[in-house]
Simulated scan of single mutants.
Amino acid sequence: MSELAPFPSSEYERRVDRTRERMREAGLDALWVTDPANMNYLTGYESWSFYVHQGVLVTHDHDPVWVGREMDAKSAEATTYLDDDHVRSYTDDYVQSPHDKHPMDYVADVVADVGYDDRSLGVEMDAYYYTARAHQRLTDQLPAADVSDATLLVNWVRLHKSDAEIEYMRDAAALAETGMQAAVDTIGEGVRESDAAAAIYGGLIGGTDEFGGQYPAIVPLMPSGDYTGTPHLSWSDREFAAGDPVIVELAGCRHRYHCPMARTLSVGEPSDEMADVAEVVRIGLQDALDAVEPGVTAEEVEGVWSESIAQHGVEKDSRLGYATGVGYPPDWGEHTVSLRPGDDTVLEEGMTFHMIPGIWYDEFGVEISETFRVTGDGAETLADFDRDLFVV
């Protein structure tokens, strides 16, 4: 067992067993896992190597097998609970090869070696790093296998967090607080957006006296001025000007577990309209959090938010939130449950969500968000940071 793995081997074995249960329900003999977050969840694997083809092969009668680039095999040995016999690697001439070689050729050989080349194999067809060419190559190399889409199979296993996972998310919450405080302390008239971003990163990664942070799956988002109605802008080197609204969305990250948080600032006194909208968002956020408890559905929670803001003549078309936890670029969401109309998933204790009630107009936007876990009787927000409209 690697000293770098954040959990004992028993935790990973439990996750693999739960994954196998879902595989049986789906009629799958094997599963090829390529989502970096799912790889990490099942084995502990952690390395910035997802830009090349890699994955974990899960079967019913073998321990999982990590497969990846030869220079990354040591990372697998260092960070996973797997023994060295279950770490397989291809040579570097498979990487972006000008010849007719592809890493999926090697993966197909591994699948055959464990005796699953003529069985049912699930793959994550909508995972970010599983390309169309990779899928075609793998299926071409396994003509007798029954290959089918199993994109979210592991993601749904991840939905329920153990107590140990929650502790890392609480650590991530402390990092989010540090990063957001850096934003509040730094942003002001005449300050460059890039300098504010640097300060935020310093807080997120420098962390606390007890622990530091990791790079988050999404960069700090910081739309400002006329562009706060565009929620996914990052930053430039422009200077903040008097009257600028600024939205800061970030996440602390600890052992790849995230705690996202968004707050809104105003460089100088905000307009009356912006202050009013911020109050609507704050009230609606708390109303929705108060509605959370085991047994309610995701859409019911969103319905409380929609009813709350409708009393003030406000509407929001986009979803209110989503499940979150382990994450790698480009996203910290789990891609399973969303707090929105039509999602009838029943909330259960141990689920974790980022509730991000944002209201965006052409002139300005307001975001005030919380990451929470579902407890036995409600919602526990993981971070502790004022929900004020900050005037800086």
Rank of each mutant, 00 (worst) to 15 (best):
M1D: 14
D113P: 09
A379F: 14
S236K: 08
V157E: 08
A383Q: 14
V16H: 01
R133F: 15
S162L: 03
G365T: 08
G327V: 06
R373G: 06
Y90R: 02
Y201K: 03
A30H: 01
G252A: 09
D61P: 08
A198N: 04
D109G: 12
V107G: 00
K101F: 14
S308W: 12
D226W: 10
V123D: 07
H354K: 03
G122P: 09
H354E: 06
Y90A: 05
L28G: 05
D343N: 13
V392Q: 02
I187Y: 00
Q286M: 13
A197H: 11
Y129C: 04
T324M: 01
D117N: 13
H354M: 06
T297E: 05
T91H: 13
T336C: 11
S194W: 03
G225N: 10
G188T: 09
A288N: 09
E193D: 09
V33P: 01
V95C: 07
A323M: 10
A323G: 08
T151S: 14
T34S: 07
D317M: 04
P330Y: 00
Y168A: 04
D118P: 11
Y81K: 03
A112L: 09
Q141R: 14
E239P: 01
S9A: 12
V147K: 04
A310K: 04
P223S: 07
T324N: 01
P98I: 06
D92L: 12
D117W: 08
V65M: 05
I283H: 08
K316D: 02
G206Y: 13
A37F: 07
F385L: 12
F385Y: 15
V111P: 02
G44F: 05
A196R: 01
A242N: 05
H53I: 03
E307D: 15
V107R: 00
W32Y: 11
Y130L: 15
A182I: 09
K101E: 13
A127D: 03
L175Y: 00
A108I: 12
Q286Y: 11
V337Y: 03
S318G: 05
H99W: 12
Y227M: 01
V296W: 05
E239V: 12
A78T: 11
G225V: 07
F240A: 02
P36M: 15
P231R: 00
I218E: 00
F385E: 02
P36K: 14
